[in-house]
Design a protein around this nucleic acid. Structure first.
Lengths: 216, 216
DNA sequence: TTTAAGTTGTTAATAAAATAACAATTAATT
DNA sequence: AATTAATTGTTATTTTATTAACAACTTAAA
């Protein structure tokens, strides 16, 4: 049986995902340049930092709309601001997190995400050991309280850091409530309606690549 | 300036990275089938679970050397074993972890990685608040103790979960000691000799994709 | 003022990955 | 025993991403 890959309902999802994935790396590098009071940077310099082709950097940056100056390069500060705005890292996207285990707690405590536009507003779990605990100012509630929560709250993003076996039911719960996007940290593939955005983050894929490179 | 992308010194690094990245997902799915006492699975069934093309699954599985049976599919148990062995998840790769902050602690405590061939044997940090603490049986030492550590110890992999600004010096330290592969969880690009394997895991790239899909 | 060199930005070529097409096989059904 | 349908596995095509080539520009140097 063959299935067409799920296509974006959008008219045109212009920007290639590889570009989108590289931009935060550039941003980190640019910030370090800025911290060192460096005013201009060329695509070649960025490329050499990441051991990649400079044309690719130029093209990636072109997507953001920034203009460079011949023989000078790009203004570091305005490039930072352009990328931040392009990636919507300047806005604040609220999120719920389900499953306050080790990984869940780490994400709650992780200050870094705040600077990149993510604001986790509450945690949910079924384990009484963590319910009512507070991490980094974020309180953990019983999952039952989520069911009763007003759907008027403007949270569009849900994070799954539950045990693998709970991933699907957690996703179902979130979809029923009205969540628009799910960030799934379990290796389980979750089934959701076509209009729900799912992003899977699997540390096991990275591990597979490392072990393969180490052993071959 | 243009730079050729760093190429694997290997004669042929045969297996495509996208395939390698998909295999752990298949594995997770197969384990759930096995838990439900399902004996055989077709590439079409796997494909439909992940909303992908069945040909791609067939090709991915072909890389592992497994043979399927026409009209029947693949034997779930032997497919699991084949993928596990193919990915070297059956071996135990020892690792050091540098930077015992929130993310570092989470990785130390994360039991899941043990089942996928990763065994973190020690943590290192400069903060006296965490030195000598034990997480999941793994002790945290002062970074200075790493410098003095015998290079005879068979640890090939180092994990960086330090603050971004410490990433490069931590990498330098590890390379000097004799580490062969680095798993970098900071968004900073680290510079290492060509023979050192580097895998970057950036949660910000995933966030960028989610925010883009949500807002466009 | 002219020339040279570095850099952007665009267009063309190549490489890699995903999808489609299809041949071969074989279990199940008639 | 013959036929049908499901499925693997391979080859061809298309799409996507990367790399190469090059034209245009502009700053700095001669």
């Amino acid at each position: 049986m063959r299935i067409k890959s799920a296509k974006n309902s959008d008219t045109a999802s212009q920007i290639p995902e590889p570009t989108l994935r590289r931009l935060p790396g550039y941003l980190s590098f640019l910030k370090s340049l800025n911290a060192n009071a460096i005013e201009y940077v060329s695509s070649g310099q960025i490329a050499s930092n990441f051991k990649m082709d400079s044309t690719l950097v130029t093209k990636d940056l072109a997507y953001t709309g920034i203009k460079g100056r011949t023989k000078i390069g790009y203004n570091v500060e305005s490039l930072i601001e352009t990328i931040v705005r392009f990636l919507d890292f300047h806005k604040t996207e609220k999120a719920f997190l389900f499953g306050v285990g080790n990984l869940g707690k780490a994400l709650l405590k992780y200050q870094g995400l705040r600077n990149y536009g993510l604001d986790i507003v509450a945690g949910f779990d079924n384990d009484s050991a963590v319910i009512n605990s507070v991490h980094n100012g974020i309180k953990v509630y019983h999952t039952d309280e989520f069911r009763d929560l007003s759907r008027k709250i403007d949270v569009r993003l849900g994070i799954i850091t539950t045990p693998d076996t709970k991933a699907q039911e957690t996703a179902d719960l979130m979809v029923a409530w009205g969540i628009k996007a799910i960030w799934n940290f379990t290796p389980q593939s979750i089934k959701v309606p076509d209009n729900i955005i799912v992003e899977n983050t699997s540390v096991y894929s990275d591990l597979a690549v490392i072990l393969n490179r180490l052993n071959n």
